[in-house]
Design a protein around this nucleic acid. Structure first.
Lengths: 140, 140
DNA sequence: ATATAATTGAGATAGAGTCTCAATTACAAT
DNA sequence: ATTGTAATTGAGACTCTATCTCAATTATAT
């Protein structure tokens, strides 16, 4: 997903292209992998951007709807997002005791999912697997 | 999962069986399907229970760790939980065009996830797999 | 019965996310 | 280029979920 595709999405919806939205999209495309909205605000502020927290929170649903980012992780505290990108795909194990997130990737798991999709005549584009449980440090 | 299994889990961890925990577990086992912590507090209060909000929030992680409930849904606002039930487990394929949800289950997929958990020394309790894509009716 | 360690409730506190509203700005129509 | 209008913005107040504090209470083993 490129910036201009997002711009097209914005104007298709009858919304306006603004400096703030440009800055947010650029920051996510260039630098961020996995982020929380508030962290994004702090990062951008430290780089000199004057974008407000409100604008970031208001832009995020657009980015999700436009397919630029996807929500990942179900933590009790805050939402986390990451760029939608085939290359860096991974799944998560989340410790419900300490909140630690273990990222993992398994080619066999991916292939098995592809096979299941074919069985259902479903064209899978993106997925999100979260295994909730207890990590070794918290389990005793 | 029965109440006595939870009691066993509690004592195995060296914790105490209290009236408050009993009430919370009973309420969830008897009545609740899908709930938010605060709703549970309100419901129990309206039934005359004197359990505090703090106790509910403190008990929920135990219920999750004990495998009685699992966190579901990724809302920005609050956490939602539901009773864990082996029988009804399934994963989802979600069509982003028409919104159709295909429920599926694969034993091999489950076993592969268990293997991956062992590799990470992670005790998986529950998981949530959502494959986003396009269903056969919408794909042409 | 006693010791002790876990648990509790009330209320303070933390913190993510939303809302308000006046000022500003993008865009289309003139 | 100018104007109209509707979307957008920022600052900060606000909401609401969730956590923490701490003295009083209670479960459990001895």
């Amino acid at each position: 997903m490129e910036k201009k595709e997002f711009d097209a999405f914005i104007s298709k919806k009858g919304l306006k292209r603004t400096r703030e939205r440009d800055e947010i999209v650029s920051e996510i495309l260039c630098c961020q992998g996995h982020f929380a909205p508030d962290d994004l605000f702090v990062t951008m502020k430290s780089k000199g951007s004057k974008v407000s927290r409100a604008s970031i929170y208001r832009t995020i649903p657009l980015l999700v709807e436009g397919g630029l980012i996807a929500q990942v992780e179900k933590t009790d505290k805050h939402a986390h997002y990451e760029k939608v990108s085939k290359k860096s795909h991974h799944d998560h194990m989340i410790c419900t005791v300490c909140g630690k997130v273990i990222e993992f990737y398994s080619g066999s798991l991916e292939r098995m999912q592809e096979r299941l999709c074919r069985q259902e005549s479903f064209r899978g584009i993106h997925h999100c697997l979260e295994i909730m449980g207890v990590c070794k440090d918290c389990d005793r």
